[in-house]
Design a protein around this nucleic acid. Structure first.
Lengths: 225, 225
DNA sequence: CTGATACTGAAGACATTCTGAAGATTATAG
DNA sequence: CTATAATCTTCAGAATGTCTTCAGTATCAG
């Protein structure tokens, strides 16, 4: 799950990112209006944390823009302004939730979870695909018979596949999604081969078929075989 | 402790959830009969708040279903219908308590606490998990045989684990829960390692297995081995 | 056939977790 | 108030687990 943090107070931004990363989210951050708009255009985030009191332009403008592009789903507003009018204008503009500063990071994380649950899980904590059951709270994966022990990257990869089942995912997209924006240009993605290999092996060993189809020159697709 | 809120009035549902989260509960919500049944099947909640005036099916049907599956323990009915007959049919169907709308959130929370105490705490203030017995009044922990002498931090840590059994807790979450203030970026969590180590040793010495699973890169999970 | 793309196992690089011991800090007893 | 004990935190090294790199091999499309 990939999250964009729009917050100009760098220390806060960093500690939010650090916390959410531990909770297994992949975080990008933007410190001003322009950066935020660039990132939002280039990627479809699962959740956007939006500080509406930016210096170079009101964060509410970002929200309006998102609304116009039908991307306002999954926006959590954070703000020092605790006035009711702000809250109302935020929520009427389509934000999902509103969290006044100061807040506990665990509270923030809980709301992010809630938003993502609403968006992806149809309100459920269990994700299933064929014989596969993913308990996103226990971070455990199993088939009807067996437990599957996955590493962190494998788990994230599987989750990404399941969220995008049936869709072809390029190596670039996978890399961006699993490693965030700290991957430079001229990198080779050999490690993705390895992670795919390992995940495949574990899934097959557990009795699911090979759900990960390779599509030559394009990428991978998670689907029924 | 995990709570399911079954309530179709979204604003009310959200404010209940928000309040209870502040009290450290974990909340799921369901807006209609079907959602509620799905959730109930997929998770064993510690308490269920049930609005019996749902639009797509009477909430009492949910209660009957719970009763049939022996899960009616821990149900708190909330309802605008204040008639005695409703109250009676609710309670005879096995609900634990009945709260008429409108109510104060603090009143609701108090009753939730009471229900959970009754359900988990053995009527006294005892909380048990496997062979482990935690007396939350005396703040003492023991197995069926032995006393376990824990320090304050170890006790808090254990309690946090037991309340969130089966869930993966990141080091960040643990740190925030046990030390309050949020901790920024470049902090080391060495003291958590130490406390986990000490708690583990005491539990193992007392004869419980190692209930604290380490999950590399993600955190810890308290579970049956 | 050929060049590009994908797969594999092994190994080194890297990161996380565990541990005991020692230094702070706090609580307790006298 | 001081001495003592208990607890909490820090630290460095060891043990462990995971990620990435790499070189060789297999597969694919044209």
């Amino acid at each position: 799950m990939k999250i964009l943090i729009v917050e100009d107070e760098k220390a806060l931004c960093d500690s939010i990112a650090s916390y959410l990363r531990q909770e297994d989210f992949i975080c990008d951050s933007a410190g001003n209006y322009q950066q935020a708009m660039e990132k939002i255009e280039s990627y479809d985030y699962d959740c956007i944390l939006l500080d509406i009191t930016l210096q170079d332009g009101n964060g509410l403008d970002i929200l309006k823009e998102l609304k116009r592009n039908n991307k306002s789903d999954g926006v959590l507003i954070i703000s020092a302004r605790n006035s009711l009018s702000d809250k109302i204008s935020g929520l009427t503009l389509g934000a999902d939730d509103y969290l006044p500063k100061p807040f506990h990071l665990s509270e923030l994380a809980a709301r992010v979870f809630a938003i993502i649950r609403r968006k992806h899980f149809d309100g459920n904590n269990l994700l299933s695909f064929q014989d596969l059951i993913i308990d996103t709270q226990a971070k455990a994966v199993r088939t009807s018979n067996r437990e599957i022990d996955l590493t962190k990257k494998e788990y994230q990869l599987l989750l990404y596949f399941v969220y995008n089942k049936g869709r072809v995912l390029s190596k670039n997209a996978i890399a961006e999604h699993l490693w965030g924006d700290d991957i430079g240009g001229g990198v080779n993605y050999d490690f993705i081969y390895t992670h795919i290999k390992n995940l495949r092996r574990k899934l097959i060993d557990a009795g699911t078929g090979d759900c990960i189809q390779s599509i030559y020159g394009m990428g991978y697709k998670f689907a029924i075989t």
